[in-house]
Amino acid sequence: MSGFFTSSIGRKYAMALSAFFLMFFLIMHVALNAVSLFSEDAFNQASHFMGTNPLIQFLMQPILMIGVVFHFVMGFILEAKNRSARVVSYAKNNGAANSTWMSRNMIYSGLFILIFLVIHFLDFWIPEINTKYIVGDMSGLHEGSFRYYHELQLKFIPIWRVALYCIGFVFLALHLLHGFDSAFQSLGANNKYTKGLKGFGKAYAILIPLVFIIIALFHHFNH
């Protein structure tokens, strides 16, 4: 295996594997959040479990962080390498003639997702870490009842935050519209199932961000 991950193809495998990990994580994330559409109680229970389970907190969470950081750092490295492979650019280039906008702008959709992730961390992750590990309050309670659902609703009162999140999810959809198919191709999976998979990929790329958007809007209008 020596040299595999420093080769162009090895890097593509690494990129695709990290992307698969993130796409799997997204399903979990959206499923958990969607619970808040149906039941305050169930959402609180689930949040408390996720927030206090040591396996999730100290194993899954660090793995996720490493996965995200690996993915975008690798993305930047590949982008820099690819840019340097063309020293003089074309005076006239018609990219739209042979490829989708999404496929040509992964770095920009990715960058917007990254900006969104930073905001998202400041909004939810930092306060959570503060309450649990700095203040030391692991109870998950606020004035006698679970705080999670209530905190979620408070976050989505300001319309600017709702708008920001929606924009973030649109970029996620754009990223995934190319990324989903691309990840399979990178792993060498191109066969008789590819056509069907492309349909599924489109559905995934649109539905997951759409449900996130619905959740944000729901809590904005229902507090």
Partner: peptide, 8 residues
């Protein structure tokens, strides 16, 4: 450069 599967 490195393929990003644009298909161009």
């Amino acid at each position: 450069g490195n393929c990003t599967n644009t298909g161009a």
